Amino acid sequence: MRTVYAASGNPTDPLSSIRVHKRNLPKPREGWVRVKMEAVGLNFHDIFTLRGMGIHEIRYPMILGNEGAGVLDDGTEVAIYPNLGDPDFKGDETIDRKRHVLGELAQGTLAEYVMIPKRNAVPRPQGLEAKDAAVMGIAWLTAYRMMFRKADLRPGQTALVQGSSGGVTTALIQLGSAAGFRIWATGRTENKRDLARRLGAERTFEPLAKPPYLVDAVFDTSGAATISHSLACVKPGGIVVSCGIHSEGGSTEVKIDLLHLCANQISLTGVYTGTREEFVDLLNFVAAKGIKPHIGKVLPLEKADEGLKDIWTGQTEGKVIITI
C-alpha cells in the first residue's frame, strides 16, 4: 500500500525525513478494524514526529498522520478518534500516562489502509463528508476541549484566539462563533486577519497588540512567543488555555509573572486532544450546525511533503488535507 512515513527523527531538518513509498498492508489484530482511508488532516504533531519529539520514544520508520476519515470493510463511513492508551484506564483518558496518538507508537493514517482499535472508528453523522471529518481528530477536537471543557464559556462572553490561520485557531474561531461567543483573533498579516473575520471573528488585531478590554478567556497555540501576552489580556478570574508550542524554535520554557497570575486569580491550563465522548459530541455539533471546516489546501498522498512544508514554515491557511 502507498504510505507517507518518517524514516527517522531530525530536530533541525525534519522535512528531510519524509518518505513516500509502498509498505506492507497492516496485519489483522483481535479487537481492531481495518479502515480504507479517504482523507487525512495534517498536523503540527507530524512535524514533532519528523523531529523526533514526543512523550514516548518513537520507533522509526513511522507512518505519519494522526487523524482521518475512511470506510470500514462493511461499508461504514467513519471518522478516526486519534487517542490510544491503556484499555483498563478509568476516567479521563487524556491523562492516561500510557496515552498516545496514531503516528506515535502505532502506525499513522497517511496510508491507503490503517488498522485501529474498534472504539477509535466512530461512525460519521449523516452529511459529514470525509474531508470535513478528516480534520476533527486533532485540531478540532483540541479546540473543542479548549473552548467547551476547559474555558467553559457562555454565549456572549469574549475570547481571544492567538492566531488566525492554523488548524486549531481556525477551528476555535469557527466553533466559538457558532456557539455564540464573541471571538477576537490575532494575525501576522492583513490576509490572515481577514481570514479570521471571514470565519466569524468579531475583531482582529496584530500580534501582541493590546485589546480594548480584558477578555474572559485566551486560547494560546504558540507558547513562548505569546504566553505572556495571553496572561496580560485575560480579566481577573479568567482563564488562559494553551495547547501547543508552535512558535518559531518550539521552545518549551517560558517566563510568566506569578504575581499577576496569583493576584488576579487567573487560571492557566493545558490541553491534550480530548476524550472519545467529546469527539462524538464534536462530530454531532459540527453536523448539526452545518459548519464547514476551513480547508486551505487539498493534496494527493504523493504530495504530502508539500503540505508538511507549509506547516513547518508557517504558510498554512486552515487545514491541509491529503486525499487517498
Rank of each mutant, 00 (worst) to 15 (best):
H246Q: 14
G167Y: 00
V254A: 10
H260M: 11
D220N: 13
L175G: 02
S230K: 03
L195C: 15
G238C: 06
K210H: 11
D194H: 12
E206W: 10
T204E: 14
F205Y: 14
A224V: 12
L261D: 13
T158L: 06
G156S: 09
A159F: 02
S165M: 06
S267R: 13
T226Q: 03
A196G: 03
G167A: 08
S177M: 06
E202V: 14
V161M: 13
S267N: 10
L153Y: 05
S230H: 09
D220S: 11
I256N: 15
R182N: 07
S222D: 05
V215S: 02
C262E: 10
L160F: 11
G200Y: 06
V234D: 02
I266H: 13
D220L: 05
Q162T: 07
S165K: 04
D220E: 15
G156R: 12
A225P: 03
I183V: 15
Y213D: 11
I183N: 02
L175P: 03
I256C: 14
T189N: 10
E248F: 07
E190G: 01
E190C: 06
S267H: 08
T158A: 15
S267D: 14
W184V: 03
V218R: 02
G244K: 00
T226D: 09
A209L: 08
G163R: 00
A217Q: 09
